[in-house]
Design a protein around this nucleic acid. Structure first.
Length: 661
DNA sequence: GTAGGGTTAG
């Protein structure tokens, strides 16, 4: 049987290879070429490129590798490298680059592609090897090679190297400038980024969309909304195409600086919004306590047909945590399992959501299922145990983490110490604090000091706590003094208490809760002059508190209560139940602790207020704590209460957290 | 067959 005539017609064969639509026809053609006696090696580059286009990168590689290396084969190698990069297989791209036969003579494109792979991988060392080879091959002044190298440095914080290279470059174009700008933004040097932009314009170049995105990010981090706004105006004046990315940067810039109405307006005017645009706005609402708006937007996003990405889901989970919306959070967990990848970031958010919605057990279960855990995930789980009053569990996790070769950081210790402190594990707390400083070389930050002072003072070791504070190089902060004072008050160490109170007053606190604590200390010390003085301070300077809000979720519906609020449809029935519980409690010997009311009122009125009291410092107060203990017994229910910081699990007339009041 | 951009976790 004769072979098709086109096999002896190289130009026709070339055309055929290029137009091969499917991998199957291509493989068949290749087989024919091999059986034919014609010298198909001269076509191997074309064949390999065709394989790349058909998506069979392995076939492409073996084809180009089997052919004798020639300068013309480098385009096929480049096509292969480029395809690996496009598909996200940067490791494979680097492997191909390393396997390149020297006779193939890598060119500017080859080095550019290899450097791009290094930049994606963050492999600075591999980048150095590529750079040396590129320089050796005479591409020291090639603008593409230099830009790729610059990008590698800029993306991974080697701004010193980037600046050096940038200054040596024979020529700079918009891409080189914008790479430098993005690099400075990334490295947390927004001022330098803006300075670069100024120099760029001095050089006679105008910014394009990519440059302006960098500048907007710089404005976002410096908080310079004026400049951000003028960039916005510049974009409009120069009729720059407002694409998704630049509009999203604008939304982010306005929202991150608190201008939610402007951000929403820009968002509404966008011709097209993708998942990132939605996520940008949702995250800002979620992070600034506007959980309802965040969840509303999340819903709208789904209605409009955009599938939430992990960023949007993480933010929505944060909103659920914020208002304790367990049912919605659970359904998001389900959505993630069906549609998204459960990576460390998402797992952390889900675990945090379960914990903050009161379900530590669900958080634990998920944590145990996650196979690869990063530092932040461990930290989150340790923090969860701590807030639920499980100091020993937190310590066990910490030890397990250490065994898993994850090195704890300052945040780990902050959570661990806080957990130990609230569970009354004094010896352990002291031990790990020393360990943190001496073995892990972590300089105690304010949050660590507050924890350890709290731990010591809580257990009565007020002198030791005070000595620790005075031994530090820096002046004690309000928070650490408050921790000390609170310990003094609870342990009736009034002498040290009074001097601590004095120090706190010198720092002029505005927080009503802190002033109340100071006043209580003076009252305990019977220093009535001081009590009057502090009360006056509370009246004159005390910051106006946003009224505390309590909420409860029943069958997925959220019920909210604010002080004096009577808007709930079942208000009457609720009050009836409260008074029923109240009389039942009094029968069991409940006496309201009126010292927790910070207003100057008659005793009788105080009691009335207390029975529907949300604490002004957003922590469960001692009176509520006692009351809920009794209610859990009367109603024979487990009651989980979350305040601003921690959880209280009440059951059979007791609270799981050993430390509260 | 070549270089640069937006959101998200303790």
């Amino acid at each position: 049987m004769g072979l098709p005539a086109f096999l002896d017609d190289p130009p026709r064969l070339r055309r055929l290879l290029f137009s091969c639509a499917t991998l199957r026809t291509l493989t068949r053609l290749h087989a024919l070429l091999i059986v034919s006696s014609s010298d198909h090696h001269i076509l191997s580059s074309v064949l390999a490129t065709a394989y790349v286009r058909a998506g069979d990168l392995a076939a492409a590689e073996s084809t180009v590798a089997a052919a004798p290396a020639s300068p013309s084969s480098i385009t096929a190698w480049n096509a292969l490298l480029s395809a690996h990069n496009r598909g996200g297989s940067h490791d494979a791209a680097l492997r191909v680059f390393r396997a390149l036969p020297p006779a193939a003579r890598p060119d500017s494109t080859t080095f550019t592609l290899a450097l791009s792979a290094c930049a994606r991988l963050g492999d600075l060392a591999a980048g150095e090897v590529v750079r040396e080879r590129a320089y050796g091959a005479g591409y020291r002044r090639d603008i593409f090679v230099c830009s790729s190298l610059l990008n590698l440095y800029a993306k991974w914080g080697a701004m010193g190297d980037a600046v050096k290279l940038f200054d040596q470059m024979p020529r700079r174009d918009r891409v080189t400038w914008s790479t430098m700008i993005a690099g400075f933004v990334n490295a947390g040097q927004p001022v330098e980024a803006i300075e670069m932009f100024r120099r760029m314009r001095e050089d006679g170049l105008e910014g394009d969309e990519v440059v302006m995105v960098g500048i907007l990010q710089a404005c976002t981090t410096t908080g310079d909304v004026r400049m951000g706004g003028s960039v916005h105006g510049y974009l409009l004046r120069h009729c720059m195409p407002m694409d998704v990315v630049i509009s999203t940067s604008l939304v982010d810039m306005y929202a991150k600086n608190g201008l939610f109405d402007v951000a929403c307006r820009v968002f509404q005017l966008m011709a097209y919004r993708n998942d990132v645009s939605w996520a940008a706005l949702i995250s800002q609402f979620a992070q600034n306590g506007h959980a309802d708006e965040a969840l509303g937007l999340f819903r709208e996003m789904q209605v409009s047909g955009v599938r939430p990405n992990s960023g949007a889901v993480v933010s929505a989970l944060l909103a659920c945590s914020d208002i304790g919306f367990l049912k919605l959070g659970k359904s998001m967990h389900g959505f993630i399992l069906r549609r998204l990848e459960l990576d460390c970031i998402v797992s952390t958010a889900v675990i945090d959501m379960y914990s903050k919605c009161g379900s530590l057990a669900s958080a634990q279960t998920l944590f145990n299922r996650v196979s690869s855990r990063d530092l932040i995930l461990w930290n989150a789980m340790i923090a969860c145990c701590g807030t639920h009053g499980r100091g020993r569990d937190a310590l066990a996790l910490f030890k397990e983490m250490d065994g898993n070769k994850v090195t704890p950081d300052h945040a780990t210790f902050a959570s661990l110490l806080s957990a130990l402190s609230h569970s009354g594990l004094v010896e352990e707390g002291k031990f790990w604090f020393d360990c943190m400083v001496n073995e892990y070389g972590i300089e105690p930050a304010e949050k660590h000091l507050v924890c350890i002072v709290d731990l010591l003072a809580r257990s009565g070791l007020v002198e030791e706590a005070n000595d620790l504070l005075t031994s530090m190089h820096t002046e004690p902060t309000i928070a650490s003094l408050v921790a000390l004072l609170s310990g003094c008050l609870n342990n009736k160490e009034l002498e040290l208490g009074e001097s601590t109170a004095e120090k706190i007053l010198e720092l002029q606190p505005k927080d009503v809760g802190i002033l109340a604590l100071v006043s209580n200390l003076y009252a305990a010390a019977k220093n009535w002059d001081k009590v009057r003085e502090v009360r006056k301070l509370m009246k004159d300077h005390g910051s106006k508190k946003v009224p505390g809000c309590s909420s409860i979720q029943i069958y997925g519906a959220l019920h909210k209560f604010v002080m004096e609020d009577q808007s709930h449809p079942q208000h009457k029935q609720i009050l009836q139940m409260v008074s029923k519980l109240d009389s039942e409690m009094r029968k069991r010997g409940y006496v309201p602790k009126t010292e927790f009311v910070y207003h100057d009122l008659e005793e009788g009125i105080k009691e009335q207020l207390l029975s529907r009291h949300r604490p002004s410092n957003l922590r469960v107060c001692g009176d509520c704590h006692d009351a809920i203990k009794l209610i859990s017994e009367i109603a024979d229910r487990e009651i989980v209460v979350r305040d601003a910081k921690r959880f209280h699990h009440f059951k059979d007339g007791a609270c799981s957290c050993g430390d509260c009041w």
